[in-house]
Write a protein that binds this DNA or RNA. Structure first.
Lengths: 143, 143
DNA sequence: AATTATTTGCAAATAATTCGCATTTATAAT
DNA sequence: ATTATAAATGCGAATTATTTGCAAATAATT
């Protein structure tokens, strides 16, 4: 696990100011064992305003420090971007989340289920790609 | 493309009543070339109440007729579940969506980019599994 | 210590989704 | 065809999720 000093360095390197709010938010994610919603962060850090949390999540995502995760709940989740590659098992009924490691896409869903502690069945999976479209790439070059 | 009568059959088979609202919503999706948000459906069908649209999207999803898609916009998208397997290219800048066909997961992202009309670069992808966790499976058996 | 560009908190706005309830309607039973 | 009934709808309001404007606070720089 990364040390505190590393967080400050990381923030500075990415052009962020090092503030108590940002360090606190990073810490919440370091302690978490699963992706967190904005609300979960807000509830954990009742000292920090919700607008600040939303703004921080977004900017840390843009810097590549946090990663945005969609889990078909009605809100976004985030996790640290430097975690080992993994996927998520999401319960369609209750929303429970489990982390799945060591999963090349070739591995079958069945194998994942067999090795899962909490899941009985996989019914669907979603794979999305996120990138930059050509018109945005062109616009960025101009600026 | 499926004919109108097929929609009625499909709804009946899944235990839904055949109503004008549902047929209209299915039609919107049949005409669409990309995943639609609830708002897009609502704007297209200004005769239908938004609560009805939300309820219909959810129940058609539960019946397996629509599929829920997360695109990191701040709202859900849906598409017909019986479309050929495909994924989505989502622009991190402007949100533009492009459908990607013929994509086994083994195919590289680079190859996808090369064959894409609109995208210059893929920076990330997300793969999520959706299923039923053991405690929900147990509870469902009891009922 | 003074300057400056960021960041924060607060309050209010907007967006996304859901809920309660009275009414209507599709289907099944007569 | 008529009726009974469970499901679906519309409406308004409530919730939940996220964003915004602006003034005050603060981290980094000089």
């Amino acid at each position: 696990m990364r040390k505190k000093g590393d967080d400050k360095m990381m923030l500075r390197k990415s052009g962020c100011k090092v503030t108590p709010a940002r360090l606190a938010i990073l810490n919440v994610f370091k302690k978490a064992k699963k992706p967190l919603s904005a609300q979960e962060v807000i509830e954990t850090l009742h000292e920090t305003d919700q607008a600040t949390v939303y703004r921080t999540l977004k900017s840390l995502e843009e810097k590549g420090i946090l990663r945005h995760i969609d889990l078909r709940h009605n809100h976004a989740h985030y996790e640290l971007a430097d975690l080992a590659e993994h996927h998520h098992l999401v319960c369609l009924e209750c929303g429970k989340i489990e982390i799945v490691h060591h999963c090349g896409m070739e591995e079958t869903q069945n194998r994942i289920v067999r090795s899962s502690k909490h899941f009985a069945e996989i019914k669907q999976h979603a794979l999305e790609f996120y990138g930059i479209c050509k018109s945005c790439a062109a616009r960025q070059k101009k600026l």
